[in-house]
Amino acid sequence: MNIGILTLRIALPGCASLKEKRQRMHGMHQRYGRNPAVAVCESAERNNREASEWTFVVAGQTVPEVESLCSEIEDRVQRTVDGRVVETTREIL
């Protein structure tokens, strides 16, 4: 079993309130938490309306499988979130 930790820091320029932030980030748990190989949480910047940090823990049988799923998540977040990914960190355990 291999574990990957993917952390994405997202800038939310022009976000006026925490309510708007929740609306813009809506669905992160539902989109990625459905996959039994992925756990997701907002790991930092919870009270900052112009930024958000999300961590994904990905499990897989092989390192390439984990890397592929991490890349898929990163690409999908960049396409679907109303914000800009400003920092990405990835670690394989």
Score class of each variant (00 low, 15 high):
S43I: 12
R31E: 08
C15Y: 01
E65L: 10
A59C: 13
N2D: 14
N35G: 04
V86N: 03
A39I: 05
E50N: 08
Q30N: 09
V85S: 01
E50H: 05
Q30E: 14
C15E: 09
V81A: 10
D75E: 11
E42A: 13
N47L: 14
R76M: 04
L6Q: 05
I5S: 14
R34S: 13
R46V: 14
W54P: 00
R49D: 10
S71G: 15
R46C: 12
L12V: 03
C70G: 04
R79D: 14
S71D: 14
R90V: 08
Q30A: 13
Q78Y: 01
R9I: 07
A44V: 12
C70E: 11
N35E: 05
P64I: 09
C70K: 03
R24Y: 08
G14M: 02
V81W: 03
T55M: 13
A11G: 00
E65Y: 07
S52K: 00
T7V: 07
E45N: 13
Q78T: 08
A51C: 07
M1S: 15
N48G: 06
D82I: 07
S43Q: 10
T88G: 03
F56S: 11
N47Y: 09
D75N: 10
G4W: 04
E67F: 00
E20D: 15
E20A: 13
Q23C: 06
C41K: 04
A11H: 00
H26I: 06
G60L: 05
Q30R: 06
R84V: 13
K19W: 03
T55R: 02
R22K: 10
G27V: 06
P64S: 12
G83D: 05
C70Q: 10
